[in-house]
Nucleic acid binder design. Structure first.
Length: 491
RNA sequence: CGGGAGGUAGUUCAGCCCGGUAGAAUACGUGGUUUGGGACCACGGGGUCGCAGGUUCGAAUCCUGUCCUCCCGACCA
């Protein structure tokens, strides 16, 4: 009762906020644009980190850590890069405080002005390439495949929990290669890692694609992306991978001697996903009762709720519940036995639904007599009475079913929301009435893209990889086009 | 950064227009009865009313400034 959630139909944005706050994922903080990630939300992020980190290691990457502060002069070395980030950088100008002589607490000590200001990293290309310069001499030093897990700061005008905050957590991979082909292959490989992770762990289907020039990363030659679709029909960029060409190598003078003993600039990539993934997860699966989390990354996969009638069966029920908990633990299932006596079963049912725990087991005296247990799955709300014999294996299988069920449901929704538009009226109508991705011809110019954005707020989300060629006419200008691209309104 | 709304008990909010002892529900603590979809009774603890100034005999209430949040826009992962 005290934790009612606004329905999606009533106010989608408020629904999302309610889930994040009432589901215990995060809190607002005293700092503008910054949030506190609470233990339950952080556990989600940790599970994402664990899955991704394993995949990075399996593809030959190692972790390192570079400074939070970047000398201002570094940022200006790559023209497009500065352009892209200059407007949203936090700058450190002083290094000391002192007591206010007027008694107003502490003030910045004007004596302690930094000779060169430090930028709090919005991303680390510059500091990393400045470092790589010293690490790379020969083709034998390549490829250099490094990732870092860290926080970054981008001073955003308008923030939303997880989706866009001034400070956020992410990983950024930065690699150096001896050939263009190898660097492009790396960028594509990491996009594939992201897509696999998001689909298999988060159960969120994505479209792999390439960004248009106006949407690509500042300083990149090509930006690859995975785009997901949220339940309100808006697209969300879930991860990006960039082929940086030799832009940063040239800006920071990073050269290597090739086998022919000639100096060449190295080829680069960078790629990242952030805590934004938590937002994507929430919006992809959840319903009006609360969160729905896929088993593979749910902090808690199973909860066991005991149901008593008086005290006499209590010890017996608890003993059995603990036995089931241990069986599940032995199978590697993240399980909790909630024997808290302060809340009644009904309260617990609602609470764990809000928190999105995939499977709930309820065990009472009636069940004990019949050697059964009630199994409820969060995604479909289906309840079933199942024999206690082999219950752990049953639950293990059910978790897999739920994982697949969530993905299939999200994919069916996504596929049903990729619609072709053949003329402008249809295009606008689809955006307003149906949402989702609109597959349409575009003349390939930035001007047209900008005009469409101005008129409809929709942008080209991506040109899908392996996009079929097809002659057609631009939806706006009627000029010739060789392929359809995906438009959508986006987060 | 523009427009709108808001900040009072852990939470949701009333009180503010019209200045005069800070309230409700819920949550929390204790005891008891309960427990198959958000239990009930009794007693109890808890708020310098976002913060800082000002007006006043007196400010949650009026004035000024400032910080933070939400929604809509411009910008963006």
């Amino acid at each position: 009762m005290s934790k009612e959630i606004t329905s999606r139909a009533q106010d989608y944005a408020q629904w999302y906020n309610d889930l994040v706050i009432k589901g215990g994922l995060a809190d607002y903080s005293a700092v503008r644009g910054c949030m506190v990630i609470k233990p339950y939300g952080f556990a989600l992020w940790e599970n994402m980190q664990a899955g991704l980190d394993r995949m990075f290691k399996d593809t030959g990457h190692v972790n390192a850590y570079f400074p939070l502060f970047i000398p201002k002069s570094f940022l200006s070395k790559e023209a497009a890069h500065v352009e892209g980030f200059a407007k949203e950088c936090a700058v450190v100008t002083h290094y000391r405080l002192k007591n206010d002589p007027n008694g107003g607490g502490v003030v910045v000590d004007p004596e302690a002005k930094l000779e060169e200001e430090l930028i709090i990293r919005p991303t680390s290309e510059t500091i990393i390439w400045n470092t790589y310069k010293d690490w790379i001499q020969s083709y034998r030093d390549l490829p250099l495949l490094i990732n870092q897990w860290c926080n970054v700061v981008r001073w955003e005008m308008r923030t939303r929990l997880f989706l866009r905050t001034a400070e956020f957590l992410w990983q950024e991979g930065h690699t150096a290669h001896s050939t263009k082909e190898e660097a492009v292959a790396e960028a594509e490989k990491m996009l594939d890692v992201y897509a696999t992770f998001v689909e298999e762990f988060m159960a969120v289907p994505v479209i792999r694609g390439i960004k248009t020039i106006s949407e690509r990363f500042a300083g990149a030659e090509d930006t690859y992306c995975i785009e997901a679709l949220m339940q309100d029909g808006k697209a969300l960029q879930a991860g990006t991978s960039h082929f940086l060409g030799q832009n940063f190598a040239k800006a920071f003078d990073v050269k290597f001697l090739n086998k022919e003993n000639q100096l060449e600039h190295v080829w680069a990539t960078s790629w990242g996903v952030s805590t934004r993934l938590v937002g994507a997860l929430v919006m992809a699966h959840s319903d009006d009762q609360g969160l729905i989390l896929p088993p593979k990354i749910a902090p808690l996969q199973v909860v066991i709720v005991p149901v008593y009638k008086g005290d006499e069966k209590k010890a017996e029920i608890n003993a059995k519940a603990k036995e089931i908990m241990n069986q599940l633990k032995n199978l590697g299932v993240r399980v909790k036995f909630d024997d808290n006596d302060n809340n009644r079963p009904g309260w617990k049912f609602a609470e764990y639904e809000m928190k999105g725990v995939p499977v709930r087991l309820a065990l009472g005296a009636r069940d004990m007599e019949k050697n059964v247990i009630e199994v409820a799955r969060r995604d479909t709300k289906e309840k079933k009475v199942v024999s206690l014999d082999g219950i752990a294996q049953y639950v293990e299988g059910l978790l897999l079913d739920i994982q697949h069920g969530l993905f299939n449901k999200a994919k069916a929704y996504r596929d049903a929301h990729i619609t072709q538009a053949s003329n402008w009226d249809e295009f606008e109508k689809l955006l307003d009435e149906k949402g989702g991705f609109i597959s349409a011809h575009w003349d390939g110019t930035a001007e047209t893209e900008a005009t469409i954005k101005e008129k409809t707020k929709a942008t080209v989300r991506c040109i899908p990889l392996n996009n079929p060629k097809e002659d057609g006419k631009c939806i706006l200008t009627g000029k010739p086009s060789t392929q359809r691209v995906l438009f959508a309104r986006a987060y």
